[in-house]
Design a protein around this nucleic acid. Sequence first.
RNA 1: GUCCCCAUCGUCUAGAGGCCUAGGACACCAGCCUUUCACGUUGGCAGCACGGGUUCGAAUCCCGUUGGGGACACCA
Length: 471
Amino acid sequence: MTVRTRFAPSPTGFLHIGGARTALFNQLFARRHGGVFLLRIEDTDKARSTQPAVDQILESLAWLGLSPDEPPVFQSTREARHAEVARELLAQGKAYRAYETPEELVAMRERAMAEKRPPRYEGVWRDREPGREQEGQPFAIRLRAPREGETAVEDLVQGTVRVASTELDDMIILRSDGTPTYLHAVVVDDHDMAITHVIRGDDHLTNTFRQCMVYDAMGWHRPRFAHIPLIHGADGAKLSKRHGAVSVLDLREQGMLPEAVCNYLLRLGWGHGDEEIISRKRAQEIFDIADVGRAASRMDYAKLGHVNGVYLRAADPETLLPEVLHRLTVSGEGFGTEKIAKLKLLLPALQERAKNLAELADSAAFVVAEGAPELDAKAAAVLTPEAKGRLEDLAQFLSGAPWERADLEQWLRDYADVKQVKLKDIAQPLRVALTGSTMSPPIDLTLYALGRDEALARMLAAAGDDLPPPT
RNA sequence: GUCCCCAUCGUCUAGAGGCCUAGGACACCAGCCUUUCACGUUGGCAGCACGGGUUCGAAUCCCGUUGGGGACACCA
């Protein structure tokens, strides 16, 4: 039997890091076993589901390389089928009509809570036939739960988990308006989609028992379950859309690389010896659901940043260029081929120094800037009157240099020798003049990439700037 | 409140009774490399929640305590 897994988000908000990891594990598990990874949009809550959320989820998954292998299934399109199953259960006597109104149920629940009893449905209609009074009245369909014994689930991550039947009550599978409830719809859909492995957050663990009742009542085979621990925020509480969760698209905006995000997520709650940097291909070979830990883990942005840096440094500059250009041109128009050529020269050195695309673009801004770059505070402090004088002198000196990287380095060293100063004392003012910052790629490369005219012009501009450094 | 789950450095983890004087990674600190920054590199800081068992031997097995988390809807 082919393995079939699915990711089933509800489109009530953005896809966050927790959902992304669930999708990742589902895809990895499917790939590992030569199976299929599917997506089901659980949009039965019409009040909260939105099209923008659907689009956002799809886009997030696509960015992460987690698009499903088949077109997504929309749960809302399957309501007739859900109702059909509910009616079948009713016909078989495995479910029954319940006539309480929602208001009455709320009252019952509140009474139970007040009396410190667990809020369970008291089962008034479980064994009562509707009388004349009920004719034409709306009713919900409830599943007849076993009253004795226990239900056990062999979870691939959590091990055997059992719960006594007394903890379960007769849940509603079809509302009085004819729409299915979540717990029911999920089972019907998973069955119809021939899902073999349900891999989801362990906040669903207790739901599983109720879902098993539907499988059992219909005589369907239960899929294997794997409940993976939740990801917590820095405060240790569950990550959710309204609590500390960062959306996947925000990570993209912050300049994270999708492969890096997946690598980080994979290592959160799962390990394989001492391996830290694991490619998608490698992950598909070694991922074992049994290796998933059982404790919740916390999101650590510092580590994500580090992993992202590793991937950024290893990235092909060609693929990074469009990303950088895009970030640099958000506010302006396109750049000429000359500037792009300069950028290409510097990019490999720049990407070694950045942790994410946002930093990379920032650090590259000086290359495409018009004229002299703006100085930050530290940089301004470097430009002492003495340094300015030397810059002017150096500009003159370098104007005769062959504009090749190796030559430029040699000329700078020669200049330092002649002037009896350390190379550093020349390099820093020069760096500031060229880039506006005290940090940059090697100075000889920067000089070379900028080109003779631009470099000399910037040096002269910095030398002629008489403004006193900020205090 | 009831039920369920969990518990190794600050964080992510390795660890399936002796290989553990508990390993790796991030973060942090110090040194080295160096034209800046980063990378790299060397070293350091730091942990088996607690208490009982079982065993010749426990981070590993059992029980309890404590602490954390999750679930208890005509939401998903």
